[in-house]
Design a protein around this nucleic acid. Sequence first.
DNA 1: CAGCTCAAATCTGTATGACAACTTTCACGA
DNA 2: TCGTGAAAGTTGTCATACAGATTTGAGCTG
Lengths: 229, 229
Amino acid sequence: MVWAMSQRSAGIIDEIEAEILNGKLQPGERLPSEEKLCERFNASRTVIREAIQQLRGRGLLRTTKGSGSYIADPSLDSLTTAMEAYASLVVEAGFMELIDFRILIETECARLAAVHAGESVLKELRQIVATMEKVQGVRAKFSKADIAFHLAIARGSGNRIYAGVLGAVERRCIDYAQTNRGDDDWYSGVIDAHREILDAISAGLPDRAADAMRRHLLSSKRHFVDLGV
Amino acid sequence: MVWAMSQRSAGIIDEIEAEILNGKLQPGERLPSEEKLCERFNASRTVIREAIQQLRGRGLLRTTKGSGSYIADPSLDSLTTAMEAYASLVVEAGFMELIDFRILIETECARLAAVHAGESVLKELRQIVATMEKVQGVRAKFSKADIAFHLAIARGSGNRIYAGVLGAVERRCIDYAQTNRGDDDWYSGVIDAHREILDAISAGLPDRAADAMRRHLLSSKRHFVDLGV
DNA sequence: CAGCTCAAATCTGTATGACAACTTTCACGA
DNA sequence: TCGTGAAAGTTGTCATACAGATTTGAGCTG
């Protein structure tokens, strides 16, 4: 096995990654200790640690001091952070692309949620809307509730891919949106839109939910266009 | 919950990441040398290097021995690898979720491509279809062309987010699909479907392109269901 | 002056050793 | 049986050293 590799860690990363992706190492399982990995790969601890760091960066591993490194759960975190980074890099040149992407995903999420969302999600959505009314005008709190609303719907869609992908772009879109306005009309308009979406989902009407969501997001997009972003 | 920085590198990562994401550090620009970063953060080289490794794992930095670390271009690679990893982790429990996601994205891509695709993309698509006819029956080559076809359409949509996200899941879906069949009818059926999509895009008919793409992918999904995946 | 060469400076990659801090294990004792 | 606490195991951080690649720049050459 000749590793004519410019970096020793590269080969090690590939090998460990492969074992994770093909299921030889299951989520939650512990990686061998750094010392053991040193023996296995005939490498110094420096190299092993670099490989682990990069795998952590990719979200495939989480590490606990004093305990060890563990295969990450297929949580949404890894995807979210990666996509967040990507979205940020592309954001200047193509914020509109991000918005369009979001509209597509969320419209479908609303449609699916009208069919699949359980009572717990509906309850959560109602609470969030109530919260939004209370914190009207307080940008940070309102923004937080706004994000929570959309992510709850994504979870209610029953498709974890949607939820993961959306988690990545949601915060960025909404934060960006709310730094560019602040008038009272806008707050009540958003709340009305959210209530309309909630009602449609609650009533189990997929098309109406999708339509309400789409109109809500297109309205946001229009504001961006008006602002000349 | 006190995040009393269990790891020195965490804070450094956040700070550097922030500078990249808010544009203070531009793509292609060089990061200060490890020694300089040591001074700036009052940390050992070990810690600095760990931060750099993780940022490399996230695809935000690329490093050249002897030269330095550079802010990565907003290429799709980082997103692709991350999403690939995520999709792999989630794949056992929810392959259908991934397929549905793909259907949603690709249908929209086809619709947009019918409007935005330039002559270069159309030419590429035609060549790919021609290739598929030639390599009919040769699974590896056919699969490669199949992937190229769908990615070219995604690029033709004019939205880089779609292209990036799709690049992450495409290979996995198609490879998986083609390991489970091999009869001649199937090959010609796929080619016909691709040609139909290509014609619609070429003719500039968004709805028809979207519909053709959707039927093509739903047909794939049906095969999975039949196979009891 | 322009351009080339090559050595020095700069920088990342790797190895080694040491110790701190945290977690897990397990034998011992109440 | 059930803690308890010491010991072993493991990751986090630091310091030092040198190999190997790249970049820089001074000095030579035409």
